[in-house]
């Protein structure tokens, strides 16, 4: 009797641990019947293109949430990054004092944009750690600021000719939004995989990753262990800014136009993907693999519903329900785990 209940328990735990993945599989099966063109290579690749955007944002977000914080500015940083990159290509960079306009090559544009994105993220970290502002407030503030600058950059207009000019040597920006030459695989997906693998390894296999988890688990204890918590957090927010800038570049490249509206409300998708992937909003718990699965769930729901003809209004309702259900299941799992730990403890005595 005892044995049976404990093996039942184990089965339940396994199902709970893989729940997001199971949900993803169920969703795929459902949409393959509900929308008859869902299970085609072209629509799956289109889903993957969208997932790459949420996924990369969600990786940075997962790091931030693990430290016990939140980053609401990711969508705005992505938007501003897109505008910066688009502007550099279409208008160049004018140094007023010298009266010259410099056109950077595409790799240079990408490098500068990503660096600025990381600095924007680091600024979040500095505001949060050095001025003791709650992460929610600090990043809410910068969310507005960067969105404002994205509009200011072009006075609200869209940069639509960012293919570059042969003569200026800045062509090739479309690379990030299209497929890798000779394959159908979107470049964004490759970037997602590279960043995900790196972020996963850093979190699990380096001292820095341990320190990130430690700060989320017990910040005071981390400080007492000699970990420079402020420094770690600034790096984490800088990483989130880095991811956001990458997303801004990919999104702009996919559309081949830089709109100041790019990335609006994407922070919510990133948070949702992170939470669906098992990241605890209380900090200390989370992993990159889960986050990627979470991003796929969000992406499949969004695109699948669109293909089924569900309107945007109903999509929002369903997305909300999915997120709340995910967190409820998370709580159930944690309670079960606590119970099991207690049981194991009593058996050991």
């Amino acid at each position: 009797m005892e044995k049976k209940s404990s093996s039942n328990n184990k089965l339940i735990m396994t199902l709970l641990n893989g729940r997001t993945f199971i949900v993803l599989v169920i969703l795929m099966i459902y949409f393959s019947f509900a929308a008859n063109n869902f299970m085609t290579v072209s629509s799956l690749l289109s889903v993957a293109k969208h997932v790459a955007l949420y996924g990369i944002l969600a990786i940075g977000m997962t790091y931030v949430i693990i430290t016990g914080g939140i980053d609401l500015s990711v969508g705005s940083v992505a938007g501003l990054a897109g505008m910066l990159a688009g502007g550099f290509i279409q208008e160049g960079f004018t140094i007023k004092a010298a009266g010259v306009t410099v056109y950077f090559s595409v790799p240079m544009v990408v490098f500068i944009t990503i660096l600025l994105g990381a600095l924007m993220g680091a600024l979040n970290g500095i505001i949060i750690t050095k001025f003791n502002v709650a992460p929610f407030i600090a990043t809410l503030g910068t969310m507005y600021i960067w969105r404002g600058f994205a509009n200011i950059r072009s006075n609200g207009a869209t940069y639509s000719s960012i293919a570059g000019y042969e003569g200026l040597g800045n062509t090739g920006f479309e690379f990030f939004g299209t497929s890798i030459a000779g394959t159908p695989i979107p470049c964004g997906v490759v970037i997602l995989v590279v960043i995900a693998v790196c972020a996963g390894v850093v979190l699990k296999k380096t001292p820095f990753g341990w320190h990130v988890l430690a700060i989320g688990g017990n910040e005071r204890a981390a400080v007492l262990s000699g970990i420079k918590a402020d420094k770690v957090k600034i790096w984490v927010y800088a990483f989130s800014g880095f991811c956001s800038a990458v997303v801004g570049i990919i999104a702009t490249s996919q559309l081949m136009s830089g709109s100041p509206k790019t990335g609006e409300s994407w922070e919510m998708n990133a948070i949702a993907a992170s939470v669906l992937g098992g990241t605890s909003m209380a900090g200390g718990i989370g992993n990159i693999g889960g986050t990627i699965v979470g991003a796929f769930v969000i992406g499949v729901i969004n695109d699948g519903m669109t293909m089924c003809g569900v309107t945007e209004f109903y999509q929002k309702v369903i997305r909300g329900i999915v997120i709340i259900l995910a967190v409820i299941i998370d709580q159930v799992q944690r309670n079960l785990q606590a119970k099991r730990a207690l049981q194991a403890r009593n058996e050991n005595k």
């Binding site: 390894v201 296999k205 380096t206 001292p207 341990w210 320190h211 988890l213 430690a214 989320g216 688990g217 017990n218 005071r220 204890a221 981390a222 007492l224 262990s225 000699g226 970990i227 200390g284 718990i285």
Partner: peptide, 25 residues
């Protein structure tokens, strides 16, 4: 002052990590 979210050996070696080539734990 422990880290409840982390395992035993991670707690014991927190901020005293042993690494191969200073990077990988």
């Amino acid at each position: 002052s422990l880290f409840p979210n982390m395992n035993v050996y991670q707690n014991i070696y927190m901020n005293k990590e042993k690494t191969g080539g200073k990077v990988i734990l």
